[in-house]
């Protein structure tokens, strides 16, 4: 999670056909900035703290033994899966309303980073299920609804890769993006609405079922995964933004070439 430094503005330097940076440009070409470097360092430090607390300091559980250590990765990843979906739904709504390119880029970033956390959630959950339930997978309400949410994210990202007019593609993706948060609500409430093997809320209740070093380890997990999520979101947003700029520059180049050809024919 490193990023190159970026001294100077780079204004007035020689560029290629798009005005892009040649080798030796004073502005290094990357999605990194001073802020992301600080964020990256904080994420690495908190991850090291999470490993220490999650694997060494926190005790084994009375019922689950050391399998409880899976919780410190599973619960935070599920939480930031929800946050990624929230960003995509919010940004999709704002894209449909305002038609601002930044909202479209944010929606894409939220879905892709959310999908990474969805895979972590399903993977760690499956590995936790084997020693506690005796199976890697069961068609339980929580597991099934999480799998459906993951499929929605995959569908959303597949839709964004269709060869369509960019505005039309973004609008279609945004409609699908609006469905993510309602699905998050279903995933979150599924353990209460239907009979489920999956345990209920550990923290979001008046009398939490976790305390001491286990609670600290879980909190460190939320911090570490939160910083990683933020770092990924910033970089992925910038990638989406750059993709939009490259597409626009390609279109400008194509139009300029077509005009030049037309003028040549007219002479």
């Amino acid at each position: 999670m490193t990023a190159t430094t970026s001294p100077g503005s780079g204004a007035g330097t020689a560029h290629d056909q798009h005005g892009a940076a040649p080798a030796g440009d004073p502005v290094p070409a990357s999605t990194g900035s001073r802020g992301t470097r600080i964020l990256g360092l904080l994420a690495l430090a908190s991850t090291a703290l999470l490993v220490l607390y999650g694997l060494v300091v926190s005790p084994a559980d009375v019922e689950m033994d050391d399998a409880v250590r899976l919780m410190y990765a599973h619960v935070p990843s599920a939480t930031y899966l929800y946050v990624g979906c929230f960003f995509t739904t919010l940004a999709s709504g704002l894209w449909l309303w305002k038609r601002t390119a930044g909202w479209d880029a944010l929606a894409e970033a939220g879905a892709e980073v959310g999908l990474v956390f969805a895979v972590v959630t399903l993977g760690t959950g499956s590995l936790w299920g084997r020693p506690t339930w005796g199976t890697y997978w069961t068609w339980d309400a929580r597991l099934t609804s999480t799998a459906v949410l993951t499929a929605l994210l995959v569908g959303y990202l597949a839709l964004r890769r269709l060869d369509l007019d960019p505005d039309s593609r973004s609008s279609r993706a945004a409609v699908l993006g609006l469905l993510l948060v309602p699905n998050v609500v279903i995933v979150n409430r599924s353990v209460e609405w239907w009979r489920s093997l999956h345990q209920g809320s550990t923290l979001t209740r008046i009398d939490p079922t976790i305390e001491g070093d286990m609670l600290v380890a879980l909190m460190v997990g939320f911090l570490a995964f939160g910083l990683i999520f933020a770092w990924l979101m910033v970089h992925r947003f910038r990638v989406a933004w750059l993709t939009q700029q490259v597409d626009r520059l390609d279109l400008d180049d194509a139009l300029a070439r077509r005009r030049a050809e037309a003028e040549e024919v007219a002479r």
Partner: peptide
Amino acid sequence: LSRQVPAGER
């Protein structure tokens, strides 16, 4: 992608 756009766009 950054290498393909002007510094001002970043």
